[in-house]
């Protein structure tokens, strides 16, 4: 069996700085220079990781890449698919018709809509192009760690 990479959320160390969100946006734009992004990119993409907060409980949540993923089953065009290389669930924007069933079925609420393009907008792909996830790399307290799970 292939090892599946997963982001382990460690709520007990998350301090709620939301730097993961910032780093996620930067990774999507494709540059490390945050100042440049903030100053010169007209429309910033939505972060694919969201910090959930309640009192002192905070944690960063992104796609869990479920074994038995509802979004895969709900997708009628096959746009939502599992990347055989990384094991991460990825969306093929060309195939996506914007029915948003995946948004409806996701038990974690981590699939986001792109209202303008009428597509699935935000779906964490574990930074497939980048190598290692930007949110994990940038977390100052190691509250997000990349682990490999053998199925």
């Amino acid at each position: 069996m292939i090892g599946v990479r997963k982001i382990l959320i460690r709520e007990e160390y998350c301090m709620g700085c939301k730097l993961c969100e910032i780093n996620c946006v930067a990774a999507q734009v494709g540059t490390e220079n945050l100042i440049k992004i903030f100053r010169y990119v007209p429309e910033l993409p939505e972060p694919k990781v969201i910090v959930e907060e309640h009192d002192y409980i905070t944690f960063a949540l992104q796609c869990r890449n479920c074994y038995d993923a509802s979004c895969l089953k709900a997708c009628m065009t096959g746009a939502m698919h599992r990347d055989p290389r990384t094991g991460a669930i990825t969306v093929n924007e060309e195939k996506c018709v914007g029915c948003w069933m995946c948004v409806m079925v996701c038990p974690f609420g981590v699939v986001k809509r792109n209202v303008k393009k009428k597509k699935v907008a935000s779906k964490c792909d574990l930074c497939a192009e980048r190598g290692s996830p930007a949110c994990v790399e940038g977390c100052p307290n190691e509250a997000l760690v990349l682990i490999e799970v053998r199925e």
Binding site: M15, G16, C17, K18, L19, E21, I22, L34, I35, I37, F38
Partner: peptide
């Protein structure tokens, strides 16, 4: 960049 980490922390 108005990430507001300093405000939050």
């Amino acid at each position: 960049v108005r990430c507001l980490a300093c405000v939050r922390l």
